[in-house]
Design a protein around this nucleic acid. Structure first.
Lengths: 220, 220
DNA sequence: CAACTATTCAAGCAAATTCTTGACAATCAA
DNA sequence: TTGATTGTCAAGAATTTGCTTGAATAGTTG
């Protein structure tokens, strides 16, 4: 049995590992899990040059994780399929459970989550039924591409303006891109500071969609 | 919001990607999915020097994918938890679906699978009930560490000797380490060449165990 | 204790990765 | 067509990775 043939096969598997072997590419996958994006927008999100971003996208494309299509002037990238999202989700879970540095880095990025109440999907569904207000704290374009039915769009930079729309006796559940997304944390903190009651969904919209739960599209 | 803090967090996630970014490390994870192993044995499996293998294992350990314990003068490595297995399984699935080179490399390693019948877990369970013979074509130590109840151990190098034990009218279902494991393929081909009926389980023992199906331990 | 086995460590070198810069290509708008 | 926008390509420098070799460490055996 040729050991080189076995090595060659596993080298192919490793291509997918290589795709996730860089923090910037991981960020790209995370953003693309929200939907299609042009190169320049992606470059902005990961704080890198357009040229570098383009090259990272090609590494992802060679590993089959993303596909692209041209629309006029721009090239739009998207994740290849749902399995890629599942892989990214599992990878984050493994890292969270086993890489010691994740907790410190997460606290550095998100701040101390002590005292920030988180609820599960089931709990959110229950509270929706009880008249809770659900805030989708992502950029408006992501909300329009798909959101939890019943949620209203409150983009990150509008949170302050909308604090007064919330009655004192209504609890807000905020969600955004995922477990490690800052927007919902910031919204909950702002709401609590303004004397309202607020909690965040423990995960994000991609996980909700992947779980097969209902999704609303458009501006509602 | 500090972009360096976000980058640092995703760099932590990327550590797990880096762990899978090398074919030899992927092979290590694949072997470890069968159970605990000492460094020297692992080195043999991946056809590398002990020193190099040790270093790869430390990369895996830093990413939290493996743990080790000393037993006498040997150090035994094992996967950190079931999630790591799940991650490896998903990664292979993504690669199989999206990396074009996988199919060619797999054929190079496994040979043409045209005409090699594969059955699912459910189908194997059904056939077990109907009196089919199930062969566990892995080294005896792996069989003893855990196998499908009702399966008998037929290590790779004993396949030829055991061909005559199989009655003409009984079908054999062979399985080994996983979808890309050669042992079951070889056994099925040998059986068919000897005029017996034989098929292989489409996946391997780790997937069976991970699915929560019953497992037998020992020599039966 | 010395000799032996199994593993890790450290140094070194070739190859790969990551980012930068500037040139080039495709599309759109005027 | 010209100019502006958006993305890719190519070359190069700094860093990291992957493997080798030989020495060092931990534990066992005689």
């Amino acid at each position: 049995m040729a050991p080189e043939a076995k090595a060659a096969l596993f080298d192919q598997f490793a291509l997918v590992g290589k795709a996730f072997a860089n923090g910037r590419r991981a960020e790209l996958v995370d953003v693309l899990a929200q939907g299609e994006r042009a190169v320049e927008a992606l470059a902005g999100q990961i704080d890198q040059s357009v040229a570098n971003t383009s090259q990272h996208l090609q590494v992802l494309a060679r590993a089959g994780l993303v596909r692209s299509r041209r629309e006029g002037n721009r090239v739009l990238y998207r994740l290849a399929d749902e399995q890629v999202e599942a892989l990214w989700e599992t990878l984050r879970a493994v890292a969270t459970a086993n890489v010691s540095g994740v907790h410190q880095a997460a606290e550095e990025y998100l701040g101390d989550r002590e005292g920030l109440e988180q609820v599960s999907r089931d709990e959110l569904a229950r509270r929706l039924g009880e008249g809770a207000l659900v805030w989708d704290v992502r950029p408006a374009s992501e909300y329009e591409a798909g959101h939890i039915p019943g949620a209203i769009s409150v983009p990150p930079d509008e949170v302050q303006r909308r604090l007064d729309d919330v009655p004192d006796d209504v609890e807000v559940v905020a969600y955004c891109r995922g477990r490690f997304c800052v927007y919902a944390d910031a919204a909950v903190r702002a709401l609590v500071a303004a004397g309202r009651r607020a909690v965040r969904l423990d995960e994000g919209f991609p996980e909700w969609r992947r779980a097969g739960l209902p999704v609303a599209v458009g501006t509602d």
